[in-house]
């Protein structure tokens, strides 16, 4: 049996070129190690840019292509000319994919040398559809089984997906989610279809987070708006009107961004543009606890 083929995708948006090149160099190294171990065959790299202007100059792109060249069989870059959001950008890049596996990764990430190999190894288990890397230096607090890695949902800051499962279940619901919540939604849809979602602690990815003066993770304005909006849409999509109401009450009296998130949700609900299908009202996979979608370890 030949080694699986891999497509690696990242969506840029006003992404600093040095960071993107740093990511690509780390991916090239990680793919090279995985290939050396016979874990991966053909590998392609696709970058899509949602920015108003390209993040990468022609020189950057040439250098990046050269840096990736030894490890990837193809490197493609597409300037979308529109902000498609995270899910929209990833969907566009993945359309027509013929590979076995798909690695989605944020442009502000850096792959540890064994990251690709560790994710590939875990996906050798045919019941697993999504294998998520462990983020550093800010480790995600959601629970997982240390032995099997089973976890309620996988962050798409860096995760590898089985494309067979994606063809069955679909990729990101970019009609419902713009920046946040699409990873939880995809994980839950996979689980509803019977696929496994796992966290792989030995697969490390650096996700460039800043810690604020108060010791908390600094969140940008986009995150402060789209985070709660994603949560509202999730609650709606999974049939949890009680959560919509409870969260709505908090947001309506919250910060300006939180109030804006509620207004955006209410407008979509009133316009009938929210998902029609309510997926999991009985809570087989969908979990809403203290504003999170998994139990947290701390």
């Amino acid at each position: 049996m030949s080694a699986p083929s891999l497509r690696v995708q990242t969506v840029l948006y006003r992404s600093p070129a040095p960071g993107v090149r740093r990511l690509v160099r780390s991916l090239a190294n990680a793919v090279s190690i995985a290939r050396g171990a016979g874990l991966v065959g053909r590998a392609v790299l696709r970058l899509g840019d949602c920015g108003e202007a390209p993040s990468l100059s022609p020189d950057d792109l040439a250098a990046l292509t050269q840096e990736a060249g030894a490890s990837f069989d193809e490197v493609e870059h597409e300037f979308f000319g529109a902000n498609l959001g995270h899910g929209g950008g990833q969907n566009r890049l993945a359309s027509g994919a013929t590979e076995d596996l798909l690695l989605v990764v944020n442009p502000d990430a850096v792959a540890e040398p064994l990251m690709v190999a560790e994710l590939l190894s875990r996906l050798a288990d045919p019941s697993v559809a999504i294998a998520e890397a462990r983020q550093l230096p800010v480790e995600h607090p959601k629970e997982y089984d240390p032995g099997s890695g089973t976890t309620p949902w996988a962050s798409m800051a860096c995760a590898m997906l089985r494309l067979d499962a994606v063809r069955q279940v679909g990729l990101f619901d970019d009609a419902s989610f713009f920046l946040h919540g699409d990873d939880v939604d995809l994980s839950w849809r996979m689980r509803l279809a019977g696929w496994g979602v796992v966290h792989v602690p030995t697969a490390r990815v650096f996700h460039d987070k800043a810690v604020g003066l108060d010791g908390y993770i600094a969140a940008g304005a986009q995150e402060r708006l789209h985070g709660p909006l994603g949560s509202l849409v999730l609650a709606w999509k999974y049939g949890r009107d009680d959560q919509v109401e409870a969260l709505g009450e908090l947001l309506r009296s919250g910060t300006p961004e939180q109030q804006a998130a509620w207004q955006a949700f209410a407008q979509r609900r009133d316009a009938g543009t929210l998902p029609q299908q309510r997926l999991d009202p009985e809570g087989r996979v969908a979990l809403f606890v203290q504003g999170n979608h998994a139990l947290h370890r701390f």
Binding site: E139, P141, P146, G147, S148, G149, P201, T202, V211, D214, G215, Y216, R297, F298
Partner: peptide, 18 residues
């Protein structure tokens, strides 16, 4: 310390403290 599938591992166990 936690047990990972391949052996001894570790996991963050608290939020950041300033």
């Amino acid at each position: 310390q936690v047990g990972w599938a391949g052996g001894a591992g570790h996991a963050a166990a608290s939020p950041f403290r300033y």
